[in-house]
Each structure stands twice: as C-alpha cells, then as structure tokens.
Design a protein around this nucleic acid. Sequence first.
DNA 1: TTCCAGGTATGCA
DNA 2: TGCATACCTGGA
Length: 292
Amino acid sequence: MKEQEYVLEDIDSFEPKDIFECGQCFRWNEEEDGSFTGVVGKNILNVKKYKDNIIIKGYCSDDIKNICNKYFDLETDYRKIKEELSKDDKFLKESTEFGKGIRILKQDIWETLISFIISANNNIPRIKGIIERISAKYGEEINWNGKKYYTFPTVDELSNAEVEDLRKLGLGFRDKRVYDTTKMVKENKINIFELEKNDSKYILNELLKFPGVGPKVANCIMLFSMKKFDVFPIDVWVKRVMLELYSEEIYKMKENENGELTPENILKFAENKFGNQAGLAQQYLFYWRREQ
DNA sequence: TTCCAGGTATGCA
DNA sequence: TGCATACCTGGA
C-alpha cells in the first residue's frame, strides 16, 4: 500500500457530487471540505474538485492512474454522448445539463451484485449502513490518515456469514437472498467474473438466476459494473419521470396497440429512443428528477 | 401510529 | 402468464 496522487487537469464531465450521489454507488461519503472518500477494491481514494482540476489522493495497492482510469471510465467521451442524447430532446438537454458531471463507474461485479440485492425496497441511508456493517464485519481493515476503512468482503469472506448473522446486521428479509446468492457464487454455479464479455441479453438472463435479482437489479448491475450502456433499469423514479415526460409519445408508439403505459412499453420506447445510450439517459433523467 | 423506501418472491386465478 | 400481496427495518 502506498500514498499516491493523481491530478486530472481541465477534465470535462467530472463532478464528484454528481458521480457519487446519482445513485450508482453506496460507499462514498462527503468530507467536511467537500471532497469525497470511498473504498474501491483494496484501495482508499479521496476525490476533490479544485477549479477545473480533479485531485485524487489515494492509499493504493496498485498504480492509482490505472485504478482511476478504469474505475472512473476516463476513456469515454461523455460530452459527446450528452450532445447526442440532447440533440432532439429538450428533457435530455435539461437533465444532462443538470447532471453534467455524471460518469458511470466501473465497479466490482461481486460488490455490485450484493449491494443491489440489498437495495430492494430499501432507502439509500439504510443501504449504505448495511453495506458498511457487512464490510466492517467481514471485510479487511485499512487504516489511512487516522481513520479506519473496510474493504467489501470477498466471496470467501462473505461465505463465513450465516443467515442469522446477516439478519443481525439489519438486512431484514434480504438476508436469505444474500446468503443464497453468495453460496451460488462461491460454488461457481455462474461465473460472474466472466459475464461481462457477453451481450446484455445473455447477461440479464444469467443474473436473473440469482435469488433477489429481478429485472431492475440485474440492469443496475450491468450498467454500474460492466459498462453496458444499452440497458434501461426501470424503478419507481424512472417510471415516474418517463410517464411525466413521454406519456404522449409512449401512447403513440405503433407497437403500443392498446395504449398502455406498462413497464414493457416504457422499455420499448426507451430502447428505441435512446438506443445504445439508454442506460446513461436513464441515469441523467433519474438524477434530475430525484433531486428536484 | 402509520407510511414509505432505486423490488422481488410467492401464491393464487 | 398475469396480478395482488407480503416482506425487515428505521426514519419522518
């Protein structure tokens, strides 16, 4: 482990607040100075915006540049994507302006799988608390700048938890789902670490085999850990914003013979309208609507 | 006290 | 297949 620093000069489309509070991650916390600190794999990172630069300080096991380039998706041109999305849509123009600093993180697939199972019918403060307690109990402790941090437990580490242990950590009815999913991963029933090389349809089908993983959770996993931007997770917020903004257009779809505003029709409309960037469109609209 | 939160699993017709 | 209902928990 080594202290390191990485400065991104004049970087476009990178606002720590937008990235860490748009709902894609649960392990980043704002500090008193406005920076954010989070645990990424076995590394601790602190991200601060200063004028047009992003200053990333880290306590890392690997080269901080490699870690950040991958994790923050620095190769992708978000400006271009935003331009394309807002080209002929006033709502996306407004929402991409509102969340202009959003980037989709490439998070660990295993951590994302468990985190979003926990997210079901839950609220963000509680989700964060549960994940923190799981990490403190089963993860690895790292000390940095006089503070204690905990890595998210590996598959082997979390396999030490019984259902009752998870219940004590506050998972509620999600305890058995996390336990059973952990067991399936541990026994390699589905190799989640090799999934991302397949197309979204195939991956969706595989992820749905895990207990606690439905369409919404599966799509979030693909979007937030595999850079599958063509998926479109539909939750209460997205449903709300889509109906508020696009009801007329969804009614008029030629596939929508009965004029129904069902999740299927919302999905068809989104895939058709947003194409390969549907996931990003979802994230801009979600963040915009939720922060209003 | 009651309701709700980035849904999913289950039991029925 | 298609639809309602229950589900831990803690904060408002």
